[in-house]
C-alpha cells in the first residue's frame, strides 16, 4: 500500500450540489490552498467510497472531470496524481488582482452599499462574466 492520500472528502447530501461536483470542488479548494501539490496521490475510488458510502462511479466521474481540466493524471495501476496547482498566486495577499478588488470593495462601501449589496453585485458580475462556462 502506498502512503496515505493527501485529501479526505466530505460529502454533504443535503447541499443540493451534485456529489461528483463536491469532490471536484473540494479537490480544487485543496489545490488552491496548497494542501494538494503536484505529485500527490488522490485517494483511490475504493478508499473514497469506503469512507463516504457513495457510489464508485461518482468518484470516477469526478476524477475524469479533474483529468479533463488537466489538474490530475491517472497512472495505470498506480492511482490518480496531481499534475498542477491552482490559482495560488492570484489569491495571495499581495497579488495585484486582489489589491484591485480590495480597492473596488472600499469604493463600493464608500458609495453607501451594504455588505449584502456588494456581495450580490459581485456575484451578478461574476455569473455574467463566466456565463456559458462549464459548471465546477
Amino acid at each position: 500500500m502506498a502512503e496515505s492520500a493527501a485529501v479526505e472528502y466530505r460529502i454533504d447530501r443535503r447541499s443540493g450540489v451534485a456529489t461528483y461536483l463536491q469532490i471536484v470542488q473540494q479537490t480544487k479548494q485543496a489545490l488552491r490552498l496548497g494542501l494538494l501539490e503536484p505529485g500527490d496521490r488522490l485517494p483511490t475510488a475504493r478508499e473514497v467510497v469506503e469512507a463516504t458510502a457513495i457510489n464508485p462511479n461518482t468518484v470516477l466521474k469526478a476524477y475524469r472531470e479533474l483529468e479533463r481540466e488537466g489538474l490530475v493524471e491517472a497512472r495505470r495501476g498506480l492511482g490518480t496524481f496531481v499534475t498542477r496547482t491552482l490559482g495560488g498566486a492570484a489569491a495571495a495577499d499581495d497579488a495585484p488582482l486582489r489589491a484591485e478588488l480590495a480597492d473596488w470593495a472600499r469604493r463600493a462601501r464608500a458609495a453607501g452599499l451594504e455588505k449584502d449589496d456588494v456581495s450580490a453585485l459581485f456575484t451578478a458580475v461574476l455569473d455574467k462574466t463566466f456565463e456559458g462556462d462549464q459548471a465546477g
Binding site: T44, V49, E50, A51, A53, I54, N55, P56, V59
Partner: peptide, 14 residues
C-alpha cells in the same frame, strides 16, 4: 449503516 454501506461500495469498486 454508514460503515456497512461503505463496505458494500468498496466491494463494488474493487
Amino acid at each position: 449503516r454508514h460503515q456497512l454501506m461503505g463496505a458494500l461500495m468498496a466491494e463494488a469498486a474493487e
